[in-house]
Computed example of a mutant assay.
Amino acid sequence: MKVLLVNGSPHREGCTHTALCTVSETLNQNGIDTDIFWIGNMPISGCIACHKCNSRNRCVFEDAVNEFLSLAQDYDGFVFGTPVHWAGASGAITSFLDRAFYADLNGGGKRFYLKPAAAVMSARRAGTTATWDQMNKYFGLMQMPVITSRYWNMVHGTSPQEVLQDLEGLATLRTLGHNMAYFLKCKEVGSKLVPLPPEEPWQATNFIR
């Protein structure tokens, strides 16, 4: 089993990376393989609603989004990390997830269907819970079970060294890693005994009469 941890910070080895490494190490201790994917620090366009992903099963823009989509099918779970900018997820990870999930959803890729996901937030001080709510909305729409911890998945600090001093935050992330490993192992066993749920046909409705 493998989990892909996505670093949505413009800093490759900053606070968000440090938080993800804590989760990764815990997953490894539980026998789960991990990789970290950095979205980079180049501008990432938002979705332009061209709907080309309907036939391509990938985005029309060739950047980190399609690189991620080409890898995602091979992973059993995901952890998405983001710094907190203006009390919300970074603009880069927001555009990244908008396009990655929309391309998969519209293209019928099902790379993420029923695969567990979690969000990890890194902040100097505030905005983490609002960001957690924002990130979890993606997982709910993609039918991804949300893995939780005994507190919201956040760390505080302005440098990796300060993050490592947030003992409660690090313990929360380790608990998250243990919980995701447990879920993945239960899913592996359960999938041999229980069939996948039936899928309802998509019924799009509008609210203008």
Rank of each mutant, 00 (worst) to 15 (best):
M1V: 12
M1H: 10
M1D: 06
M1T: 07
V3N: 04
L5E: 06
P10T: 07
P10C: 09
H11D: 11
H11E: 11
R12I: 04
G14P: 03
C15E: 13
H17I: 00
T18L: 00
T18R: 00
L20I: 04
C21T: 15
T22F: 04
T22N: 07
T22Y: 08
V23K: 06
T26G: 01
T26A: 02
N28C: 11
Q29D: 14
N30W: 08
N30C: 14
G31T: 12
G31E: 13
I36W: 00
F37S: 00
F37W: 05
A49S: 15
A49T: 06
K52D: 08
S55Y: 07
R56G: 00
R56C: 02
R58P: 00
C59Y: 05
C59N: 07
E62C: 05
A64L: 01
N66C: 09
N66E: 07
F68K: 00
A72D: 04
A72E: 06
Q73T: 08
D74M: 13
D76R: 04
F78G: 01
F80P: 00
P83H: 07
H85V: 12
H85T: 10
W86V: 13
W86K: 05
A87E: 08
A92L: 09
A92V: 00
A92I: 02
T94N: 12
A100K: 05
A103D: 08
L105T: 10
N106L: 15
G107Q: 02
G108T: 10
G108P: 05
F112R: 03
Y113T: 12
P116E: 07
A117K: 01
A119Q: 04
V120E: 02
V120M: 05
R124H: 07
R124N: 02
R125Q: 08
A126C: 01
T128C: 14
T129E: 13
A130R: 12
A130L: 11
A130Q: 13
T131E: 02
W132R: 02
D133N: 14
N136L: 01
Y138H: 05
Y138D: 01
Q143D: 15
V146Q: 11
V146L: 14
S149R: 08
W152Y: 15
V155S: 02
G157F: 06
S159R: 05
V163M: 06
L164G: 02
Q165W: 02
D166R: 09
L167K: 14
E168N: 13
A171S: 14
T172P: 01
T175G: 03
G177K: 03
H178L: 10
A181N: 06
A181C: 08
A181L: 07
K187S: 12
K187L: 08
G190V: 05
S191A: 14
K192A: 14
L193Q: 11
L193V: 11
P195G: 07
P195Y: 06
P197C: 03
P198M: 06
E199D: 10
E200S: 05
E200Q: 10
P201W: 04
P201M: 09
Q203M: 09
A204W: 09
T205C: 11
I208W: 12
